[in-house]
């Protein structure tokens, strides 16, 4: 029978270990950054086709994640997809003529939004829209076009 004091000490150690494990999960594994995505600023971009982009998909510049997709909606007058991006507050020097692409990581990987900075001296600010966009590449369409072109060449 453990004495009362031993019990209290071991319970204390157990709880400390548990919280340490939680801390490890939060910091080391999920890389919970203190400048969380709730901060930062919003940009919108219109795409003819966003492929399989999901909310919370990464937004990258030069392969580095700078934000996430916050929401997706459909504009019923222009028939375009409107994507709202939340960009980390520290990334405040994206030029106005930044180009937004929908990329796929690897052949079968998830899709993300890649930004390619242009050369403008003016920067995008909260609420601005990225004008230059390129839609997702849809594999079926590409194959279809390829076959069509082949047929045209041979015919």
């Amino acid at each position: 029978m453990a004495t009362r004091h031993t019990i209290e000490v071991t319970v204390g150690a157990f709880m400390a270990l548990g919280f340490l494990a939680l801390f490890f999960l939060a910091m080391q594994i999920s890389n919970l950054s203190l400048d969380s995505t709730a901060e930062g600023y919003r940009l919108t971009a219109r795409f003819a086709n966003v492929g399989s982009i999901k909310v919370r998909a990464p937004v990258t510049v030069a392969g580095v994640r700078v934000g996430r997709v916050e929401s997706l909606s459909f504009d019923k007058t222009t028939y375009e997809a409107v994507v709202t991006l939340r960009i980390d507050a520290g990334i405040d020097t994206l030029p106005e003529d930044t180009f937004a692409n929908v990329f796929t990581s690897g052949l079968l990987g998830e899709q993300y939004i890649g930004l390619e900075p242009g050369g403008s001296q003016d920067y995008l600010r909260d609420g601005d829209e990225i004008v230059h966009t390129q839609s997702a590449l849809v594999l079926e369409q590409m194959i279809g076009q390829f076959l069509f072109k082949k047929a045209g060449e041979s015919g």
Partner: peptide, 11 residues
């Protein structure tokens, strides 16, 4: 707490 320890040790 036990689940967190399990996951951390597992990783």
């Amino acid at each position: 707490l036990l689940a967190a320890i399990f996951s951390a040790v597992g990783v």
